[in-house]
């Protein structure tokens, strides 16, 4: 499977990763090999097969919409890189101009 630098860059952009120009060849090769491995299965007819997303047919359980635990914001934010007054601090998102 021929994966181009543009393919890798497109996927990297979606995944919020930067791939250095010097690494594009290697990442294209890695991705191509995984897809190639999978493409060999193309001959198996799966048209009438129901997709399996969870073994044992697990589905999301529902519970009553009541408070079961209080979140300790201070404890949870202790590991955050930067907080202020209980908020997460990030670079400016809205351009003031």
């Amino acid at each position: 499977m021929n994966i181009t630098h543009a393919d890798v860059e497109r996927v990297a952009k979606l995944a919020r990763l930067h791939i250095a120009p010097a690494d594009l060849d290697a990442r294209a090769r890695d991705l191509g090999r995984v897809l190639e491995l999978f493409d060999r299965l193309g001959a198996i007819d799966t048209r009438d097969v129901e997709p399996l997303s969870h073994p044992l047919g697990a589905t999301q359980r529902l519970r009553p919409d009541v408070v079961t635990e209080e979140v300790d914001r201070t404890a949870l934010q202790r590991g955050a890189p930067q907080t202020e007054d209980g908020m997460y601090v990030v670079p400016r998102v809205i351009d003031p101009r």
């Binding site: 999978f38 299965l41 198996i44 799966t46 097969v49 129901e50 997709p51 399996l52 997303s53 073994p55």
Partner: peptide, 10 residues
Amino acid sequence: KAQRLRRLIA
């Protein structure tokens, strides 16, 4: 396709 193959394996 992979999800369908997963069912065949199961």
